[in-house]
Amino acid sequence: MTLLISLFAAIISTAVWYKNAPKSQMKTGVLCWLFWGSSLMWFVDAVFEYAELKAEYFNPTPAEMLNDLFLGLSVVALGLLVWIVILLISDPKCVIKDKLTKKDDE
């Protein structure tokens, strides 16, 4: 479940990045690296887990699924949080800088 959610997040963020590339200043590339990197790593994790559990891997209990769902959503939230912090700190459109300097002028 976590792998699936992360993979969907990677595909969506890549589509958004591609749609706005190359002029976009929104730094959506950060999201692509985060979600693709983790998707690849969780894929390896899933392969090893499958080798150990065999068919049982595809039959998780509802409690396990719920936990994985929460984890997947939390991972996406954390990824988005990292992205927004990087975006605001780098401030590519100088929105924050302009706002602060305007205040100084007044």
Binding site: T2, S6, V30, W33, L34, F35, W36, G37, S38, S39, L40, M41, W42, L71, S74, V75, L78, G79, V82
Partner: peptide, 14 residues
């Protein structure tokens, strides 16, 4: 580097 860092960070959270 970005792939490794991004993946390691989210995996560490897991």
């Amino acid at each position: 580097r970005n792939l490794l860092l991004g993946g390691s960070f989210l995996l560490a959270f897991e």
